[in-house]
């Protein structure tokens, strides 16, 4: 079994002290270049008319689909979450989709990548939460319903981040490994099936990762909104009763 099937981090092309240029980083750059250049090429001459290019149509469907998903989950204006959540989905989706390309190793098969993404989500949640509700408002949710829930809330926060990282890593890595093992045992036909299955898994994982990230962020912002709504309702009710 090749090294890259164990972890792409292990495939080091260049090293200088702790700085190492491994396959994960290189392929990430590749994926980034692909996505960005693709977007750049398509969006270079966008049409705001009714007629447009197929590629623009594809991107519009993609972006609009992501927006509607975000809107459904968060019940908020999707534009502020779209760059982060959409990029998560796009990045993971392209990483996983390219597994059918020979000699390619998906960066998502590296725990370092998935951990990095999970950390991003872990950080993004409080950022969005604090921006929406203020520092106090955000951190108060850790001591709800009582102070005793604080450690559990923190553990929950950490564990879901860990789960986020490991789920994606496990799925993609296992897919890679199964494909590699099957290639060794039964080189014909079976690896193709497993690759197809791997593609499906990859797409689903990209979707799951993005949706979960959105759910976490939404939960950090929505609670406050709901509470504000309730307060407003109560206030109006009081006014009405005092008037009565």
């Amino acid at each position: 079994m090749e090294l890259k099937y164990i972890s792409p981090d292990q495939v080091v092309y260049w090293q200088w002290g702790p700085v190492s240029l491994n396959a994960t980083i290189v392929f990430t750059w590749g994926v980034m270049a692909l996505v960005v250049i693709g977007a750049l090429l398509i969006t270079r001459n966008l049409s705001s008319e009714v007629r447009m290019s197929r590629w623009q149509n594809l991107l519009e469907i993609l972006v609009d689909g992501m927006r509607s998903q975000i809107r459904q989950i968060s019940q908020q204006v999707p534009e502020r979450y779209l760059p982060f959540v959409g990029s998560l989905f796009l990045y993971i989706f392209v990483c996983n989709l390219l597994t059918i390309v020979p000699f390619y190793t998906p960066p998502t098969a590296s725990l370092s990548t998935t951990a990095a993404l999970a950390i991003c989500v872990f950080v993004a949640v409080p950022i969005y939460g604090i921006r929406d509700r203020g520092v106090g408002g955000y951190f108060k949710q850790y001591i709800r319903p009582t102070v005793f829930m604080l450690p559990f809330n923190i553990m929950g926060e950490l564990s879901r981040t860990l789960a986020l990282a490991v789920r994606l890593f496990g799925n993609i890595m296992s897919g890679m490994k199964i494909a590699a093992i099957l290639l060794a045992i039964a080189p014909l036909l079976f690896p193709v099936l497993m690759h197809a299955l791997g593609l499906l898994t990859g797409v689903i994982q990209a979707y799951i990762f993005a949706v979960l990230a959105m759910v976490y962020i939404a939960s950090a912002t929505q609670v406050q909104k709901k509470k504000q709504g309730q307060q407003q309702d109560n206030g109006e009710g009081k006014e009405e009763s005092s008037n009565g």
Binding site: D9, V36, P83, S87, Y91, A115, A116, I119
Partner: peptide, 26 residues
């Protein structure tokens, strides 16, 4: 299993990607 330098690089890469996509795509 986790290479922390790679993690940091990936975080950076991802943030760059977010910025680029925000500007060029969304």
């Amino acid at each position: 299993m986790i290479d922390w330098f790679t993690v940091a690089a990936q975080i950076f890469n991802f943030l760059v990607l977010v910025a680029l996509l925000k500007y060029f795509l969304y």
